[in-house]
Structure formats: C-alpha cells, structure tokens
Design a protein around this nucleic acid. Structure first.
Lengths: 329, 329
DNA sequence: AGATGATTTGAAATCGATTGCAGCGATGAC
DNA sequence: GTCATCGCTGCAATCGATTTCAAATCATCT
C-alpha cells in the first residue's frame, strides 16, 4: 500500500491536520514544519490528488478538445496551452475528436465528469449549433472556430481578412482563374471561403470554391481531379496545412510545375512550407498566442465570471514565397 | 452546486448504493434501473471521477512523458497511445520535458501524485541513470530510449541496424566522406552513432560524428559550420527529424545542391520529407506500432506483474529517395 | 405452514485528503 | 490576579462515490 497522510502524521508525531497545514499554507511553527518535511522524506509520501480534489472541490484541471493533435496547428496550440497551464499549477486533459460530433459529445461529458476548471474547445460546425443549449458548470473558451456570438469567450484568426489577403496577393501577381479548397466541417473553413469569395468578387475575378473533409487524403483526391480537368485553375488557395499538403502532392503527381503551371497559397506556416522549392506562400497563424490567449481568457473568466464575453481576433501574417511568383503574360 | 449521487437517489426514490449499482454492473431489477436512468437524465447527473477514483483505488489513468509533443515523432506516438488508452476506457496525462531532467523529475512526481495506473516514458540519458534507484508503485514502459537492461519493459527501434542501413546505402551510392550528426541527450542518439561508426568502419570509410542538442536550431548552426569547412563531407546522416530539418536549412543557406554537393539521409519520415525535391532518404519508424505496443506492454504487465520484463525491438524501413542519388565519379 | 435459497435493496464504513471549530498554553493589559 | 488575545494544534465533519454486510422480499419446495 502507498503511504498516506496518516502515516506521515504518525511518523512526525503530529496530527493529520497539522501535516496538511505544514505542507500547505496553514500556520505552523517552524519546528513542526521541519519535522513534517523530514517525515515526508523518510516515508516517501506523495499527496493523493484525487482525495485533494474531492475534498477541496477544485480540480486545477483544464480540458482541451481539438480535432487532431497530429495537425501541426493544433500541436503548437496545445503545447502553448499546456505550458501556460502547468505554469499556473494546473494540468491539461487532451482529447482528439477527428472532427466527429459523437466523440465531441463523449469528451465533453468526460470533462464534466472530471469537473474541469475550464474547457478550451475547437468544435465542429455540427456541435457548435448545440452548444447554445448545453449548460456548462465551467467556463468554455472556443479556439480556431467561432460559436454563437457572445455566448463564449473566443480566440480566432481574422479568417476573412487572411483569405482576402491571399486573393489580393494572387490578383496582383497576375493570377485570374483561382480555385479555393476549404475544410467543410468547421466554421473556419466557411469563413475562409467567405473571405475568398468576397475578395474574388471585389477584384472581378471568377473563382470556384469547393469543400472537402479536412484531411490531406481528401484534399489530394479532390485536387487530383480538379487539376486534371480542362478548366484547370491558374492557382489554388488551400484553407489549412493538411489541404495544402494534399494539393502539393497532387501537383507533383500531375507533374505540374509550381508556380508556372499552378500557383499555390494556403494557411499554416509549417516547417516544411519554407523548405520545399519553391517555398509556399502561406498565412502564418500566431499559434503560441492563440494558446496563451485562450488560457488568459479562461483565467480572466474564472476571476470575473459575470464580465461580458470577449472575442479575441488575431490577424495572420502573409508570408510571400515562390509558389505565387508573378504569372507570365 | 452540481448534482451528486444523493440527488439522483432522492429523485429516483432509492438508496445511494442502488444508484451506484444501477449505473455500474451491480445486480438491480430492470424496473429500478429504468427509474435510475430516468432520474439521471432528469437531474443531469454526471459521476464525479475524483470521488470514484479515490474510493475505488484505480485511476484508469496512464501517464505519458515525452520530450516535446511538437516533434512529429512524439506527436504520432502519443496519438497512438491515446487512442489505445481511450479505447480501453483509460485517460492519458501528457507532459513535455524539453529534455530537461528537472522537469522529468517534476512530472514523474506528478504521476505519483495522480496515482497513475502506469507510465510511458521517454527519458533523457541523465534521468535513465537514476531510474534504477527510483521505486515506482506502478509499471513503467520506456519508449524510444532504452534504460538499464531488464528493469523496465521497453519499446525501441533497432537503432544500430537502422543507422547501419543508411551508411550501407550511402556507401553503395558512392559516398565516402560521411558525417553524422546525432542528438546528445538521449541513448537513442548514442546508439545511432554507434551503428553509424561501426558501419563506417566495416566499409573502411573515415567518418566523423558530432553531437548536438536535439533541436532544429542547434543542428542548423552546427551544419552551417560543418558545411562551410574546407573538409566538407560528401554526405550527412541526421539522427532525427529535427536535425534533418536543420541540415536542409543549412544546405539551402549555403546554396548547396542536394545530392550533388551534399547527400542527405536521416531518421523520421515526416510528411514533408517526400514533398521537398529531391525527396529525402529516411528511416521510417513504425510510430503507431510503437505507441500501441507500449500500451500493450503496459496492460500485459498489469495483468502479470511478475513476468520477466520484455524489450520490443522494432525495425525501421529505409525509404530511398533522391537526396542520396548515386554520386558521380 | 414453514424452511430454504436466491435476488434485491439499504445502512454504514471507507478511500485520503481539507477545513471549521474548539482547546490550550503563553503573553500582555489592566 | 484575572481576563482577553494570539498562535498553534487536534478533533471531527466533509467531499461523492464504491463496497461490504446484513436485512428484506419473494418464490419454491417439502
């Protein structure tokens, strides 16, 4: 059996409550504190967090529900969240939904059972609609994807502006027939499409938008077909890093030169986007800031539960590289 | 206040213990079970996991301590671990150490306080040495890095063979002056160096090994210097994905052509290694298998605590790509 | 009818900590 | 000398579940 606080009390010759106070912040004499610390060392005592959480009624735990940790965007965000959490003496429970609403529901229930202090969540469109009805006992911060306005604190990119910036750039570089491939399961995909369409219209360009499941394989399949069609676009905009990967693969498979045969621009500045040749023009998201800001919103909400909800809109940075070089003619 | 089992009992008109049994696997009449389920739905009850864990004395939790989740190798492994865990009704606590022994110690202590059912751990060399002395109340499975022989269940790559395969391949392709850059904080780096040196000697080749901190920036700096030296090697072997990234950056910065000016081969088949041109020759690790196998070892150990420890050695796959094309002359 | 046994149910102990409250000795004020 | 105050300590209640044990119910058999 593992050693508990009772054993420490016996070893130190004091009561249980004194041990608790000596290890916490209660008032104890210096002499007793030393005795207790010695007893802890001698017995190898480690407090039982389940017991502590049950009694004290705070779990010091934040939930983090994302689509897939293998998506470098979520990897980076979650790392930032974890750093901020551990720094504040809290721990993180991470769950991957793979964009599946059933798993989202499952993990939300898990968070309730864990009695998390707060939840950071990147839900699918399907789930966002039902969030309004759900009564949470803890604050929820949405990241990457916006929910019903005003109900939750939120950290998102300015997706419309970012998409527009890409279109703007492509237009200046002389691209005219531009296709957009967007993730269909998130509001983020929708917003990026909206920004794309609006900017295309503003420049008097005829574009086409398509939606796919947000993974590289689906994007590759769709891009393969699209790039093989007679009306192949001059450039493609991809709404996230996974889709961008698929598009590059498709272009390579068709033997198309970038940017001569097909211009490419997308979202998410992953390590490799600068290493392929030509480099890929992308919107870089402030991933660390997103994670840190989400935790900050959470803490702020815990401190002032009644304050009006806030929506932090961060802007991306357009990194121009060779994949959108000026089009000849 | 949140609703607890007492409220459900009152709502269903039965005792607390009956509610517990109705929701668990205890014997209850079909009629009562329905009443209880109705009461749960009506009250919105969610069991408190802290209380359950305290009383039942199993936490159904596995700890996972890795260097950095942003390293795609660990991302993939941890995703596999999580999938296996959640499938078995367990949850995962993930911690990043950044190869810092102090943080390793901190997180190991955390795992003890959480009373985890088991721990999956990729420790630094510094910590491995002290593991022997540490008494754990739960099984520990080492991944990626081997510890003192026989003390812990372990899942590792056959690092020596993988390194040797790379050298073999480079030798056949006509490379002779080959440099090796290895991570210095892990046994994995050491083993890969050993395999490298042995294979070089076996082929009568004169190589040079260098060690760096296992991150892209350190590798880039070292490679920058190395590639600028008069005795620039004809090819470089990199002991993981981060170092490979750094080496490619350095090569690009010097304007060196791959493979004409510098051949490159490394470990970890990340998405981009097949997208850069030329593609990079790498050892692909069976990342999903590593994660799944680690969980399997853990479960096996829990079932038969006294069984002799096992060391699962998996072999990598050498993916030959353009970065090691046959050397002219 | 009464004994037997199987099947459900409830009362109460328990997990390991935190925390409100009361006790106790020493000190200082009057 | 007495009483209030202060600083520290211990007792016991409590958090919300699981689990043991005994009681209650009911059908079945003799």
């Amino acid at each position: 059996m593992t050693v508990n606080i009772k054993d420490v009390a016996r070893a130190a010759g004091v009561s249980i409550s004194t041990v608790s106070r000596a290890l916490g912040k209660g008032p104890v004499s210096a002499e007793v504190r030393e005795q207790v610390q010695a007893a802890v060392k001698a017995t190898g005592y480690r407090p039982n967090l389940s017991a502590r959480r049950l009694r004290s009624q705070h779990t010091l735990t934040v939930g983090l529900i994302v689509a897939d940790i293998r998506n470098p965007f979520f990897t980076a965000v979650s790392r930032a969240v974890e750093d901020a959490a551990y720094q504040a003496g809290m721990r993180v429970i991470l769950c991957n939904t793979d964009e599946d609403p059933a798993r989202e529901a499952l993990y939300v229930r898990l968070m309730q059972e864990e009695r998390v202090t707060g939840l950071i969540f990147a839900p699918t469109r399907a789930t966002i609609g039902q969030l309004r009805a759900a009564p949470f006992d803890f604050p929820v911060v949405l990241i990457d994807r916006a929910g019903p306005d005003g109900q939750f604190d939120t950290v998102v990119l300015d997706n419309r502006a970012a998409s527009a910036a890409l279109v703007e750039h492509l237009a200046v570089q002389g691209y005219r027939r531009i296709g957009g491939l967007f993730g269909g399961t998130s509001t983020t995909g929708l917003e990026r499409e909206a920004g794309f369409s609006a900017a295309m219209a503003a420049h008097g360009l005829a574009g086409e938008s398509r939606f796919v499941a947000p993974n590289a394989a689906a994007a590759e399949a769709e891009a393969m077909a699209w790039l093989a069609s007679p009306a192949r676009p001059e450039a493609l905009v991809l709404s996230n890093g996974l889709l961008l990967t698929g598009a590059v693969k498709a272009a390579r498979a068709h033997g198309l030169r970038i940017p001569e045969d097909i211009g490419l621009a997308g979202f998410d500045n992953e390590t490799w986007t600068g290493l392929v040749q030509p480099g890929l023009t992308v919107i870089e998201q402030p991933v660390e800031t997103i994670g840190r800001e989400a935790m900050a919103l959470l803490f702020q909400r815990l401190k002032t539960p009644q304050a009006p909800t806030r929506k932090v809109v961060l802007s991306g940075t357009c990194l121009v590289r060779g994949s959108t070089a000026a089009r000849a003619g």
